[in-house]
Design a protein around this nucleic acid. Structure first.
Length: 499
RNA sequence: GCGCCCUUCGUCUAUCGGUUAGGACACCAGAUUUUCAAUCUGGGAAGACGAGUUCGACUCUCGUAGGGCGCACCA
């Protein structure tokens, strides 16, 4: 008989879906999914708070929707535009006036601003008291008189007593009503304020649980007043802590205040992102890495902390690495595909079901796929996966496979010297004898070891120039894997090219 | 300034009056090794401070300090 749980995410489209918003959305989504899964029924709704027409842009709305989709936080039904509901908000504001819970106020804004500035200058706490609150000599509830006077509708907030928020995260928070002022509900141009719109929308949408950042905690008290004025039941509230930067202060761009698409482009997996974000403030014992399903199963808003957490790229990377290791190669290649198109770059390796290939935008014809491209990727992927923190690391680690010619970087070039080149010749002669059908990691590894045993050259002295010749770099997976991935022909070609 | 909230290793956290205060990331050392990495093993590292309550406090209460958030005809 318990009611279906309805949560919502209500971002204002002023930019992208930032990391804090993403976590708020995640918690709302998780709570609804958990309810759904446990048979109680759950819905996660999306509402765009676009009442501020000046700041709102369609692109920002798209960025938020795209961000949510990428994270896998699908919402029920259509996204609701708050702006489009403004007639309904105005209707409620007028109803509150009719009920004596709100009143028309004719004091011009600039007058109030001047009073506030004067008080602040004197170091006094300013709280506006409208002379119209108790009719102020005007006829009761009279609308704006004809003329140039503009009126707003203000809430007739209680002057004494207290408003209590029984918060699922913050606990019992008590705000003295004298701290709350008669906030504006309907602006002089007839548009609703955020405070009114939120309450009306949440009520109309049947939202049962409001999960949002603590920055809304004092707003919550004001909103409770509106619920009470309308005689509506107050939803269950949960105000989650904010995310701070590594320095403990406000999250700056440098410390991670980026849109989620930026994390996608940096090569983080959406499930790793969710995992990490969930762990910021929420925990399930000592568990660190979990799947979306486990998160849904374990999540409870009551297990969310009250204190703010700092964003840490290192830990995100570690979690991401774990998730990449958990994925099978097919899924990983699919993830690489999602990543690569927006990446750009001069030479972008791209991954397809057929393997990774390199596309040079300046020359469409420059695509180059090794004959054994797909096979090479499959051979290399497990090794690459082991040492990568992001998908980008994998792409970069595999890039050597697709180079038309190897141009060793500075460090690698330093390994190709007159003293080491003879070692390369030893390798070339030995592996040239390996037949195509025997060209695999085990045979190659055995061959390398045999060279070391017979020639007395140290493995390190042999491997260093070989790695430089094959990959152009000083780091790579084991050389026997590299050679297996490159294939016989390409391997011999690259070694010979250095001699 | 006023109000509300927060405070366990460097970071994220476990603990729900009795623990050698646990785990993860990061860091350091050792092992292995084909550089780097990866892997394995080990190590250092914490209850902001001060009073209470209690047989006993990281845990409850109060104060102090530090930090965060809020105080619009912005959302």
């Amino acid at each position: 008989m318990s009611k279906t749980i309805v949560t919502r995410f209500a971002p204002s489209p002023t930019g992208y879906l930032h990391i804090g918003g993403a976590r708020t959305a995640l918690f709302n989504w998780l709570y609804a999914q958990h309810a759904k899964k446990s048979g109680r029924g759950g819905k996660f709704l999306l509402r765009i708070e676009d009442t501020d027409r000046a700041r709102h842009t369609p692109q920002a709305v798209d960025a938020i929707l795209e961000g949510l989709k990428w994270l896998g936080l699908d919402w029920d039904g259509e996204a609701i535009s708050q702006f489009e509901r403004s007639p309904r908000h105005a209707e409620i504001a007028r109803e509150m006036v009719a009920r004596g819970k709100a009143y028309y106020c004719y004091t011009p804004q600039d007058e109030i601003t001047a009073m506030r500035e004067a008080a602040t200058a004197k170091g006094e706490h300013f709280q506006f008291k409208s002379p119209y609150r108790d009719n102020g000599g005007r006829e009761k509830n009279a609308p704006a008189p004809a003329g140039d006077e503009k009126a707003v509708i203000r809430l007739k907030a209680p002057l004494t007593g207290e408003t209590v928020i029984d918060d699922q995260v913050q606990g019992r928070v008590v705000i003295q009503n004298k701290e709350l002022d008669d906030m504006v509900l309907l602006r002089s141009d007839g548009t609703p304020t955020y405070m009114l719109a939120v309450v009306v929308d949440d009520f109309d949408m049947g939202v049962t649980h409001i999960i949002r950042g603590v920055d809304h905690l004092t707003n919550a008290a004001r909103q409770v007043l509106i619920y009470e004025a309308m005689g509506w039941g107050v939803p269950i509230m949960a105000h989650i802590p904010l995310i701070h930067g590594a320095d403990g202060a406000k999250l700056s761009k440098r410390h991670g205040a980026l849109g989620v698409e930026a994390y996608r482009d940096m090569g983080y997996l959406p499930q790793a992102m969710c995992n990490y974000l969930a762990r910021l403030g929420w925990s399930h014992g000592d568990d660190e890495v979990f799947t979306m399903d486990q998160m849904i199963e374990w999540f409870d808003i009551k297990d969310v902390n009250k204190s703010a957490a700092r964003f840490d790229f290192e830990k995100l990377g570690a979690i991401n690495a774990q998730h990449m290791k958990m994925m099978d190669d097919g899924a990983l290649i699919a993830a690489l595909n999602i990543l690569l198109p927006p990446c750009g770059g001069a030479v972008t390796p791209r991954v397809t079901e057929g393997g990774i290939f390199v596309e040079n935008p300046s020359s469409v014809a420059a695509r180059h796929l090794l004959p054994q491209g797909e096979k090479g990727v499959r051979i290399l992927l497990p090794a690459l996966k082991d040492r990568a923190k992001t998908l980008i690391d994998i792409v970069e680690g595999a890039a050597f496979l697709f180079a038309q010619t190897i141009t060793p970087d500075e460090k690698a070039a330093a390994l190709l010297t007159p003293t080491t080149l003879p070692h390369l010749k030893l390798v070339l002669d030995a592996i040239d004898k390996i037949e195509e059908s025997n060209w695999n990691e085990d045979t190659l590894q055995a061959t390398l070891k045999a060279i070391v045993a017979e020639s007395g050259v140290k493995f390190g002295d042999l491997a260093a120039p070989l790695r430089a010749a094959l990959t152009g770099k000083t780091t790579s997976p084991n050389l026997s894997i590299v050679m297996a991935a490159l294939g016989r022909e390409e391997t011999l070609k690259r070694i010979a090219a250095q001699l």
